[in-house]
Computed example of a mutant assay.
Amino acid sequence: MILCYSLYMLPLFVKYAPKSLVEFVGQKKGIAELKQFIEDFSRKKTKKACLLFGPPGCGKTAAVYALANDMQLEVLELNASDFRNKDIINKVVGEASKQRSLFSFAKGKLLLIEEVDGMSGNEDRGGLSALRGVIAQSKFPVIMTANDAYTRKLVELRRSCKLIQFNELTTLEVYKIIKRIVQEEKLDISDFVLMKIARLSEGDARAAINDIHSFSNEVGLVDDLRDKKESILKALMKVLKTVDIDVALRAFDRIDVDFDECVLWLDENLPREYKDAESLAKAYDILSKVDVLRGRILRRQHWRFLGYMYNLATAGVALSKKQKLVGYVKYQRNDRILKMWIARRANSKLEEVLRKIAEKTHSSVNKVRKNFRFYLTILRDMAVAEWLGLGEEIQNIVKK
């Protein structure tokens, strides 16, 4: 059976990916270097691979495909996360780097390996060294992409590659990209809204394109982007009741609640809504992935995962059920939220004590915190506490 996909079924960032470098917005220096690399490779005047690096959504993959179209090259794309260990890389990537193009129209071939900076840990052992071996034997140019080319695990790989940097897109460049799509799709979105989307994207064109897709499907006028605050209960209903991906994705956009707290609300109320065991298991599996990504952000400062966390906690949880849910369910606050609030309140009071001691003793807050056990004995004297200007409530905390 042959499946035929209409252009209308494609995501907008795929449908409107530049077919030629003439259509490409921004990255002039990086694209010139990338084109020069391909030309030099054919004359054997450069390294066999280049490492194309830059933030998410800056056009790394799109540039490779646009350049390949212009130069009539076949692109064989592989993702490093799919071919991770030494044996698989040697078998799959190694063979692909030696085979000629299967298409008669192509004048050559290039090998595109995405997200090489995502290879790490025991399951990837030997993967990067195998990749270096494949590059050395490749008959075709190898282009690899990464968000961060200067992570320690890529030290050896960098030596065998030409480094090409793509910078974060400017707000104006993102605006030009999404403006063209809006005109082609005949969407009713004003320039004011488009510029706001471009600013909020922080240079990520893919995120901005996804945003205009979501806005175009939202009920009501897209231009009405006033900051109407919603309650957490209403936001939860948009995730837990619906199976509409666009509604779910924007569920937490207009609430004054921290994202981590939203996840705790979902954790507490999922069993109240999802009575089907399979749907509940899927939803909790997705929330566990949110927690894993949060841990990676805290440990490695990989802030690009934040968008994935948001999408998983909203659309991911919403689509884990089989159908739209109806009926009233009373949502409850997670006990951990109350404990977090109490802890934050206690810490703020402690910080006030530390600050006042630091002012009176002409010390730094960190030094006072380090020697706080000593200061505690002095603070038990009411005269000292009054001299510091501590309130009665804080004095009671110190006495405890």
Rank of each mutant, 00 (worst) to 15 (best):
L21V: 08
Q323S: 11
L266D: 08
V22G: 00
L73Y: 05
V243R: 11
G389H: 03
P141M: 01
I181Y: 00
F305Q: 13
M340A: 00
C58G: 09
C262F: 01
I89K: 03
K228P: 13
G121L: 00
L240C: 07
Q183A: 15
K229A: 12
Y310A: 03
L325I: 15
I337T: 12
R294A: 05
I2R: 07
Y16H: 13
A315E: 13
D258Q: 14
F305R: 09
G389K: 01
L233F: 10
A281P: 00
K349G: 13
N334K: 07
I342D: 13
E185Q: 13
K60L: 04
E386V: 04
I209P: 13
K45L: 11
H362K: 11
K109R: 08
S190L: 09
K19L: 12
A62L: 04
F192D: 14
K179D: 12
T46M: 02
D70F: 02
V243A: 06
K186G: 05
Q72Y: 12
K349C: 07
L51T: 13
C262Q: 07
F13I: 06
D227R: 15
E202V: 04
V142D: 02
I135P: 14
G327S: 05
S201K: 04
F41E: 07
K330M: 08
N366F: 11
S279Q: 10
K44F: 13
L354N: 01
L266E: 09
L249E: 07
L67M: 08
I197A: 14
V174R: 04
E39A: 15
K241S: 11
R380W: 09
S216Q: 04
L249M: 04
A343I: 03
N366A: 15
Q332Y: 10
L163P: 14
Y65W: 15
Q301I: 03
K282Y: 11
E184D: 03
Q137T: 06
M1V: 08
L270C: 04
S101Y: 00
Y150T: 03
L266V: 06
N167S: 08
K228G: 12
D381S: 07
A385L: 14
D223V: 09
M1D: 08
K44V: 14
K179Q: 11
G108D: 15
I197L: 06
V92Y: 02
E184F: 01
D70V: 03
R355C: 05
M309S: 11
S6Q: 12
A251I: 02
S190F: 04
I143H: 06
G121D: 00
G307N: 14
L3R: 13
A96W: 00
L319T: 13
I143S: 10
L388F: 02
D211M: 10
G26F: 02
E351G: 10
Y274Q: 10
R152E: 15
N210T: 06
D148M: 07
L376G: 14
F259P: 14
K275V: 12
M382D: 12
A146T: 11
G391R: 04
D256T: 09
Q27M: 09
